[in-house]
């Protein structure tokens, strides 16, 4: 099973590199960094029907980080939700795969992103509503560490705990980066912060597939309230020349480097 997940993670990275090359940009550092987390989420955690993104009992995957759209599309392609051939259309005018994720554009995209700090609030409502309706579906939200700066995230964190939403699972891509550089407010004890807010917390290496599987299994076994996985990741992971590059919100890639990046992909 782990080899299956490793293959998935590699495929997600390859799809992301292909999309990045089409546009010459598109948050490729983040996509490579979060690929292992997405492989485990789509390959191990989420219940969904690839050919029926509107299936009522599906687990909801909320991409709170709309700028990670390129990573989500790659994961959708690997999960069979999007045809891999459609990825060539990424970011084109009128494409169903816009650079910033939009629910109105892409089947399987549950919320419109771009403005950060929205995912957990919507997850709160979805979690409440699904529980109210007797559904066993779960709500899984991907956040970034930058989103932990937003007051709205912490308002929702308290609401999820207050309502005891055991069907809400948050995942944070802790890559140490935000737009101006290193993370600002979200440093310090993240585990302690979330625990203090009433969440069950795990923190793992976001590139260790075994550790990710174990952590998700523990968090989803018999939750009594909301839970969160803090995944430490490295932007550009899997492409050595990108891993070594100075960390930046926009990883700069020269036109001629894409082919080389694909070759380097481990």
């Amino acid at each position: 099973m782990r080899t299956g997940l490793a293959d998935s993670a590699r495929n997600i990275r390859r799809y992301a590199l292909e999309m990045g090359e089409v546009q010459g940009q598109g948050y490729i550092g983040q996509a490579l960094g979060v690929a292992d987390v997405l492989a485990v989420l789509f390959g191990h955690v989420l219940r969904f029907r690839p050919d029926d993104p509107a299936w009522a009992e599906r687990d909801r995957f909320l991409l709170s980080v709309g700028h990670y759209a390129i990573a989500a599309y790659a994961a959708f392609a690997e999960a069979g939700i999007v045809e891999p051939s459609e990825l060539a259309d990424y970011g084109a005018d009128g494409s169903s795969l816009p650079m910033s994720a939009m629910a109105s554009s892409t089947p399987g995209m549950e919320i419109s992103g771009g403005s950060l700090g929205h995912g957990l609030g919507i997850a709160t409502g979805m979690g409440l509503g699904l529980r109210h309706r007797g559904s066993s579906a779960r709500v899984v939200t991907l956040l970034s560490d930058g989103e932990l700066d937003e007051g709205s995230t912490w308002e929702a964190a308290m609401a999820c705990a207050q309502f005891g939403l055991a069907n809400v699972l948050a995942v944070v891509d802790v890559n140490g980066l935000q737009a101006d550089g290193a993370t600002v407010l979200a440093s310090g004890s993240l585990v302690g912060k979330w625990e203090a807010f009433g969440w069950t917390v795990r923190r793992t290496d976001g590139h260790d597939l075994d550790a990710l599987v174990t952590a998700f299994d523990e968090l989803t076994a018999a939750p009594t309230g909301p839970s969160i996985l803090l995944a430490d990741t490295r932007p550009g992971r899997g492409v050595p020349m990108f891993e070594d590059r100075e960390r930046a919100h926009f990883l700069p890639v020269r036109e001629d480097e894409w082919a080389q990046a694909r070759e380097q992909l481990t």
């Binding site: 700090g117 937003e150 007051g151 935000q178 600002v184 407010l185």
Partner: peptide, 9 residues
């Protein structure tokens, strides 16, 4: 002063 991504503050 850098406030991080916290527009209300």
């Amino acid at each position: 002063f850098q406030f991080g991504m916290s527009e209300q503050v």
